[in-house]
Design a protein around this nucleic acid. Structure first.
Lengths: 105, 105
DNA sequence: CGTAAAGTCAAGTAGTTGCTTCACTATACG
DNA sequence: CGTATAGTGAAGCAACTACTTGACTTTACG
């Protein structure tokens, strides 16, 4: 379902990241999500489609409202990909710590 | 320098992720990077500009060649952002483990 | 000097994105 | 029934993306 291309593309938009942050507090309807964005309901619906197709958000129809919630495994895949680069910044932070220690003495 | 928008946008392209993966093995020139992509040198150069402006790659001119290397702190920022969602997939994995345990017994 | 290599810059192009408006469907409520 | 609410779908538009070609600059080497 969600390729890394789709995942990172979906995350590369402030509105979509804000939507995910809203969903940290639990599920929400499309209208509830849209209320906090200076944008049309259709605009938010488009963003939700991107998030859904990337596998980041699941939408469930209940009556006439859609309830959205985070689907975390694709986020985990992105995090796992970034882990391959962790050694680089750990080393950089170690170097900084070393320099700071030198200053302290 | 690199906003999350720029970071995730830069990561949302397979060619650019491959370039980063190439740089895991140490620094490389633009031509060396381009050799492994079915693309013009100019094309790869464009991708490197995106990575550079996002703060993901640092380019240093030495003689007539440019040497590129990973600049990891922006990757760390992206990883830190994803950490806010970690609890979601940990919970999901716990549930899966619980189900599997139930099957074993 | 002349020529080749490494790479950027500018311009063009086909496709994509983000957003809107308008029309529409489906559910709820009086 | 009629009307309001929740949301999608289609079409349109300005801006951006990924990529190319061709001209150019800078460095290296004989």
């Amino acid at each position: 379902m969600g390729s890394l291309d789709q995942t990172f593309h979906a995350l590369g938009d402030e509105t979509r990241r804000t939507i995910l942050a809203q969903l940290l507090n639990g599920e929400a309807s499309v209208s509830e999500l849209a209320n906090q964005h200076d944008m049309t309901l259709t605009g938010v619906s488009n963003h939700l489609r991107v998030l859904n197709e990337a596998g980041l958000v699941r939408v469930e129809k209940r009556g006439r409202t859609r309830h959205c919630r985070i689907e975390p495994m694709v986020l985990k895949e992105a995090s796992d990909w970034l882990d391959d680069y962790r050694c680089f910044w750990v080393r950089q932070l170690d170097n900084m710590a070393h320099v700071l220690k030198g200053i302290d003495e």
